[in-house]
Amino acid sequence: MNLNHVLWAVGLAILIALPFLAPPYFLHLVIQILIWAFIYTAWSLMGRFGFVSFGHGAFLGVGAYVPALLWNYYGLTPWLGIPLGVAGAVLLAIVVGYPCFRRRVVGHYFALVTLALSQVVLLSLVAARDITGGSLGFTQKAVGHSWYALQFPEKGYFYVIAVLLWLAGLAAWRSIDRGIGREALEAISEDEDAAAAVGIDVMRQKMRVTIVSAALTAVGGAIYGQYVMYLNPETVSGIAVSLQIVFAAIAGGVYSLLGPSVGSLLTLSLTEGLRVWFGTDYIGAANTIYGILLVLCIIFMPQGIVGSLQGMRRRGAIAKPLVTLDRQSATRRPSSAAQ
């Protein structure tokens, strides 16, 4: 048994003990951290291979709103609503992802196309205000403790769900990290043509990781919705939440298993801590400091927090950028060579 196993064991023991020891407010924070950690991990499945998506706000929004709407209007149980929401997000991922990859929309262009997707979902949710409540938000019909409705007023249930969800996210990350697809994807992010030339099915690999990432993000959105029982287009879709996802995942580090989780832990406890610290008199103070830290983090810790710590541990390791974009985009500068 090495140090890593010990750390995992201690970590899990703490997670199991938490609901019995922690005050409700603290538990609430931990549940949020876990759910967002799951979402950030889902994003990093794509992000680590250089597909920087600003479209996860769209998957999150669809995943959250579909089951909530179906529940309120048709009384459909989230046990069916969530898979439908996930299917919707996957469909969206395919409809946008496939042509993107086919037409080689990469780098800045990919980032901005997916950003537009986020905005489409956000604005559609606002525009359909007769159904969704628009920017005022949407509250699910509460029925108290119910497995059928997947509603639990006691935090303990959601705590268990969040832990399981988080572990499932880590398992997905690990299976891609350990699988043969990883090398293929790394080759693709290095040089797509070369990867195709050695027989890698570029399309299939990209689509696979995109679909998994979108599906998990939608699940995260659904569970988040079930937990907080209130949805707002601005908090589950659009540019703001997409940036939040990208930032936290990258700040933690997308190349390590726990990187996105650390990103979630740090960003949420930071904003929450700052919020408590400044109270309600200084709205915006917390995010101001958060913004400064983000910029500093990107300038001084370009490999993310976990990556930088690991880098310090094994000094001399080759520095990796936060994320390597597809090479075409990294070198595609308007130069005479391209003429």
Partner: peptide
Amino acid sequence: APINQLLATGG
């Protein structure tokens, strides 16, 4: 990397 630049201005 270009994405770091994008993120710095995002921050």
